[in-house]
Amino acid sequence: MYKIGVLGDYDSIYGFATLGIETFPVDASGAGEKIKELIAGDYRVIYITEALASEIQPELEKYEEQITPALILIPGITGNTGDGVANVKASVEKAVGSDILFGEE
């Protein structure tokens, strides 16, 4: 069975453990290697805080064209930067060929 994990700073991700999701507090220096470890360990959905994702963007780009893992950006305790919504919007546009939020911005 595939697994779900969450990467980011401890304060932003510790609540996910109450949902039974494994948490991995990391900073930018260890995030790339941790993602590789998770993929090797059958993690197919990986939530990443927006703050961490902005620091490791080149590493995340390696997985853009792959079906798995699904790398999903989430807000951290510092707030929502809008990167997560933009990422989902771009994925949907790519999948359906249309801007689903046309006129709502």
Rank of each mutant, 00 (worst) to 15 (best):
M1I: 06
M1H: 06
Y2A: 07
I4T: 14
I4R: 07
I4E: 01
G5Q: 11
V6A: 13
L7T: 10
G8W: 00
D9S: 07
D9C: 07
D9W: 00
Y10Q: 13
Y10F: 13
Y10A: 13
D11S: 12
D11N: 05
D11R: 08
S12F: 01
I13M: 08
Y14L: 15
F16I: 13
A17H: 08
T18K: 15
T18R: 14
E22T: 08
E22M: 09
F24E: 11
D27V: 11
D27Y: 04
A28V: 06
A28Q: 04
S29M: 10
G30M: 11
G30K: 05
G30W: 02
G30F: 12
A31M: 08
A31T: 08
G32D: 07
G32W: 00
G32L: 06
G32N: 11
K34F: 08
I35L: 12
E37I: 02
L38V: 04
L38E: 12
I39Y: 14
I39N: 13
A40N: 14
A40G: 08
G41Y: 03
D42N: 14
Y43M: 06
R44N: 13
V45K: 02
I46T: 09
I46H: 12
I48V: 11
T49K: 04
T49R: 02
L52S: 10
L52E: 02
L52R: 06
L52I: 08
A53N: 01
E55S: 02
E55K: 07
Q57A: 14
P58N: 01
E59W: 00
E59F: 03
L60P: 03
L60N: 03
E61G: 11
E61K: 14
K62W: 00
Y63T: 12
Y63D: 10
Y63S: 11
Y63C: 10
E64V: 05
E64P: 00
E64W: 05
E65W: 00
E65C: 03
E65Q: 09
E65P: 01
E65L: 03
Q66N: 10
I67P: 15
I67E: 14
I67C: 09
P69Q: 12
A70M: 10
L71D: 13
L71C: 02
L71Y: 05
I72L: 15
I74D: 05
P75Y: 06
G76W: 01
G76K: 05
G76A: 09
T78L: 09
N80G: 07
N80C: 15
T81S: 13
T81V: 01
G82K: 02
D83Q: 07
D83N: 06
G84Q: 04
V85F: 09
V85D: 07
N87T: 08
N87C: 06
N87K: 13
K89M: 09
A90C: 05
A90I: 00
S91I: 11
K94P: 03
K94G: 04
K94C: 10
K94H: 05
A95G: 10
V96L: 11
G97P: 13
I100Y: 01
I100E: 00
L101R: 09
G103E: 03
G103M: 01
E104D: 12
E104A: 09
